[in-house]
Design a protein around this nucleic acid. Sequence first.
DNA 1: GGTTCAAGTTGTACTATACAACTAGAACGC
DNA 2: GCGTTCTAGTTGTATAGTACAACTTGAACC
Lengths: 146, 146
Amino acid sequence: MNSAESAVETIQREMTIFARRARASAGRMHPELSLVSYTLLSHLEEQSGCRATDLAAHYALDKSTVSRQVAALERTGLIERRLDPEDHRVQVLHLTEAGEEILTQVTHSRRAAFHERLADWPEEDLVRFAAYLERYNAGRGDSGPA
Amino acid sequence: MNSAESAVETIQREMTIFARRARASAGRMHPELSLVSYTLLSHLEEQSGCRATDLAAHYALDKSTVSRQVAALERTGLIERRLDPEDHRVQVLHLTEAGEEILTQVTHSRRAAFHERLADWPEEDLVRFAAYLERYNAGRGDSGPA
DNA sequence: GGTTCAAGTTGTACTATACAACTAGAACGC
DNA sequence: GCGTTCTAGTTGTATAGTACAACTTGAACC
């Protein structure tokens, strides 16, 4: 096995380890906001609001799943739905103030955790690692290995 | 924000994207072997057998979770339990032949998917990316961001 | 104006998970 | 040596996240 192949093996193994750990620890870090909820809120913030269907498409989730997630986030007051006046089937989702606050807070604490984890990395390596990850994730739609 | 900080932001964002996708697609890639089952079987192969408690500790899972996973894997004939003659509380878990076959098969197909994904990367970048991931995952036990 | 399409909800089922209570067996203290 | 305490594992119960299928409601298009 040449070194490119063995690097691919390592990438596979380490990505798998990461995915498993992320799954296991996601709920423990921020009991008030699961990884899924967090990514949904982030998306709403980035997009300044969007439809449930857009969330489902973007995250490759079933619309029923999104519907329930959205219902839960509305129940806890983190988002609100506004009927699209153009099309009454559509609910445009927006962060509430409470939602923005919690999102900010969780973002900060996640950021702090990543910073701590990466504290002793030289800047050059951080920049390169970041670029590799972007390239990896950009490398496809949503099939393939994770 | 300096470039180290913005690299950390990127790493955080991309790792989060990866973790979410992994979760969403894990079950779809290999319906016959979930990501968790796959990692448990891999561990058994690497270790040439181990105890349920070791799996729980290694993967930061509750022992009840492991107990049920193990029961399922035994039911489908992929692993077997052997009572430790030294200590009758202990069940040493081993892959069966069927387990080894399926593990090999899934490993190959995961490997192929990663290879395809990384096909157009220069070897130098693969090697560096692999090293960064190892370093990242080695960076702690099982707290912190995913 | 009926047919077809799109957005979302609800019923149902399944998997992965944790925590707590329990059983069975081992080890230690005196 | 026998009670206390520790360890390995199972089972009961609850929860989150997910999918698929059936349905409702509204829009669009002949």
